[in-house]
Nucleic acid binder design. Structure first.
Lengths: 195, 195
DNA sequence: CCTACCGATCGGTAGG
DNA sequence: CCTACCGATCGGTAGG
């Protein structure tokens, strides 16, 4: 087996274990010893796979930012009503929270522990995503699909109404991702709608 | 001036500075040196006013839990529709986020850094609050005021739809707490409603 | 991938 | 309220 391939796998394992720890304890409270224990290694051995603690956080944050922006790209070019576009984005957030452990760390609170220049770069990506989300909401207000709310308020309410899932959702639960999409999406779209 | 009174004031100052730092950097990433700088003291001098770093977090968390539970008590005894009761609770959350810096730390993510036995005690208070909030939502569904959503989903959506305010709201902004209450509350109550 | 170990920083104490 | 300092733990390196 080529060394590069083996390293890749181990690096992925480390990243996933780190994402779990960052979610449970937060980035600053997670030590490299904690992480090493989680992957059955000594702390020093982690450095054969990664170059620093922050690199892990950086990879998680930027990897997910790119994913969210890629979906945004698709949604913008989608045919259909604004309601359908916003639902597609809500679905993305809900699916991501219930399926992808590494994502929650990034879009919740841990990105703020990045140091410069990564912090500014990440904030710019995030601002870009939020701005494009808000533009879609504004389009819905102009077209009359949504009622005349303050776009920034609507954006943040939607955005965060979906943030509790990451530490509440357990795959064993009887509530599925589909039910969440229907009920959370339904509640919010009904709230935004005109009638 | 009596020493106790002076200490009280200084302790309050320390608590407020700590709440600001905990919000901005998180509890584990806030050092006692950071806090000492913020109140123009040496780290060691903080211990004339407080007994440990965790005591500050504990005071903030439990102080606010009591406040939220006190309002819950009032709301439960309130005359009026379920819609009015839920709006009163949403108002509490919005007002608290825009007015009281120390509260956000507690009801967001920093309470998880409490150690036992405080952690379990705090979780119990939180669970108590959420359970009573959910009971009100269930009452609204039974009475027909709300549509038949999953109560736990509605609870958490409401609960967290209001959590972005703490790091977004700046007193200088043109959007006032009243507008927030009207628009955020309006969106959510409309989403929950039957028609 | 390990043992051994580094300088820096942590929360907190002693003593005045 | 300060200076001086403690043991523990941090992220990370050297060397094999």
């Amino acid at each position: 087996m080529p060394t590069t391939e083996k390293n890749k796998t181990k690096k992925q394992l480390i990243r996933e274990a780190a994402a779990r720890l960052f979610r449970d304890k937060g980035y600053p409270a997670t030590s490299m010893r904690d992480l090493a224990d989680a992957v059955q290694l000594r702390a020093s051995s982690l450095y054969n796979h990664i170059s620093s603690k922050e690199e892990i956080l950086k990879d998680i944050c930027f990897g997910n930012a790119q994913r969210f922006l890629a979906v945004m790209e698709e949604v913008e070019q989608m045919e259909g009503s604004v309601t359908e576009k916003v639902m597609a984005l809500l679905r993305l957030h809900i699916r991501t929270a219930t399926e992808d452990l590494t994502s929650v760390t990034a879009f919740n609170d841990e990105w703020r522990h990045l140091t410069e220049p990564h912090l500014s770069e990440f904030k710019a990506l995030r601002k870009n995503y939020e701005g494009r989300f808000q533009a879609i909401i504004e389009e819905g207000i102009r077209s009359g699909e949504f009622q005349a709310v303050e776009p920034a308020i609507a954006l943040h309410t939607l955005f965060s109404a979906v943030r509790w899932l990451y530490d509440w959702y357990k795959p064993g639960k009887k509530i599925t991702a589909e039910v969440l999409e229907e009920q959370v999406g339904g509640l919010l779209m009904k709230g935004l709608g005109r009638k």
